[in-house]
Amino acid sequence: MAPRTASFKLVLLGESAVGKSSLVLRFVRDEFSDFRESTIAAFLTQTVPLDDSTNIKFEIWDTVGYKSLAPIYFRNANAAVIVYDITQASFDKAKSWVRELQRQADPNIVIMLVGNKSDLKASRKVPRELAEQFAKDEELLFTEASAKTGDGVDGLFMSIAKKLPLAAPKTPGSSGVKVANTPKSEESQRACTC
């Protein structure tokens, strides 16, 4: 039997230049560039096999273009990846995103805190223990990763995949109407790289 694909919306949060988009590009395309100026892909999808019967499809929303995030960004988000840079004072901003999610997002959202640029340990400014303790107190998933080397990247998305409540529907409302121009079955094969 072909595995079923469950779709989940994942939002990326964090201060600029902490490597949000780099993490996603490493995950989706296994690419990295030191000199990428700004985000080129704001809506990407990536499907990973969870087990023999289930594939998890992440619909990834990047914050590109938003100086001010819209509520629609958080609407029905199943997972959030909050990124900070271990070499910069970007951890407080990460904390404030956790508060923002607690205020705006669904209470069941799976939150992953990620300390990026783990390859630059020599210039570390945020101790791993500090972030680890914060994640524990707030019941968040936590890891350090490097978009540059790829270290920890796939793993962090897999950890999220394992935590997602598979039974939960992506959108509420059982009597909704679908206004679309592509059948759902096609949509899952089409990775949008716009």
Partner: peptide, 9 residues
């Protein structure tokens, strides 16, 4: 022009 599709669920 695109075909519009609708699903009632």
């Amino acid at each position: 022009k695109r075909d519009t599709e609708l699903e009632s669920s």
